[in-house]
Computed example of a mutant assay.
Amino acid sequence: FGVNITYIYQGKARGLADAVYRVKDVITEDKFLVYLGDNIVPYDDFSSFLSFKGSASILLAKVDNPNSFGVAVIKDGKVVKLVEKPKETISDLALVGVYAFTKEIFEVIENLKPSWRGELEITDAIQGLIDKGREVQYKIIEGWWKDTGTPKDILEANSFLLDKYAERKIKGEVKGSSIDGRVFIEESALVENSTIRGPAFIGKGSKIINSYIGPFTSIGDNCVIENSEIEYSVILDNVRIEGVSMMDSLIGNNSNVIRGKKWTKLIIGENSRVEV
């Protein structure tokens, strides 16, 4: 993607606040953004989000099941309280996993105690700022967003992103095949004697042979799909699927699925081999 990335290894999972604290020595600006990697938030105004006043800013969204999230209590236009997965409903405004902080957050985290889950909670860290009298700004987003914590969530996120961003672009080789709609075929991919109906994505080096790829399907790099039918699924890298019909499926890296005869729903982890 044309960017330089520095990876910081957290080691033992001790909570989001601990993960944030681990980047203390690599943050060079006074303000920085924290965006949880398993959340998809179609929010485009991050420059404005980082131009906050006070010590922090958070993105919120109204949810029907606030007990499953960290939530914020707003009073007179100010954030007054944050609670991680409250047992009682105190607010319907959930934190969606996007935060902006000043370096002051590191001082608060240094004095945090683990929660009942044995973790340093980001909600407790932000609450620490509030308890010190610091201002925490917020923005409420509307529309779709997703915490991709389950296979179903990943499939829904894939569907949303393909529907919103997919375009018709064929960089790979197509032989004797039908490509319908918004299908993105990456370089060095091969589609032969097959039908692909968009929105769909085919990764680099993948081969689609004598197969049907239906809408809302993403196929990673260096996969081989042969004599198969796939719809509404996510296939990660280096997967081989042969003679299988599947839908609503999530297939992990380096897996093999072979000799299927009926529509199948599969959730398969990395480095697996399944015969159906």
Rank of each mutant, 00 (worst) to 15 (best):
K171N: 15
E121N: 13
R117E: 10
I230A: 11
N193G: 03
M247Q: 13
D153M: 10
N210P: 02
G176C: 09
E121C: 11
E142A: 06
I209C: 07
L33S: 06
R259K: 15
A61C: 01
E270T: 08
L95H: 04
Q137W: 07
K207T: 15
S57A: 14
M247C: 13
D18P: 08
V174Y: 05
A125G: 11
Q10C: 01
G2E: 13
L59D: 04
V80S: 02
N254F: 15
E142P: 04
D163M: 04
G220K: 00
I267W: 15
S178N: 08
S218Q: 07
E29I: 00
K146M: 10
S68N: 10
D25R: 12
P215I: 11
F101I: 07
L190G: 13
I140K: 00
S233E: 01
T28L: 00
D45F: 08
E156F: 11
V26K: 07
I170W: 07
E270K: 15
G269M: 07
V234Q: 09
E167Q: 04
S228R: 10
Y7S: 09
K24E: 11
F106S: 03
D18T: 11
N65Q: 08
D124H: 13
K103I: 03
M247N: 14
S188F: 12
I141E: 06
G77K: 01
E29L: 00
E135F: 08
S47F: 08
P199R: 04
S51G: 09
G149A: 14
Y21R: 07
S233W: 05
L50D: 06
K261H: 14
R197A: 00
A17C: 10
I268F: 01
F1G: 12
T102R: 14
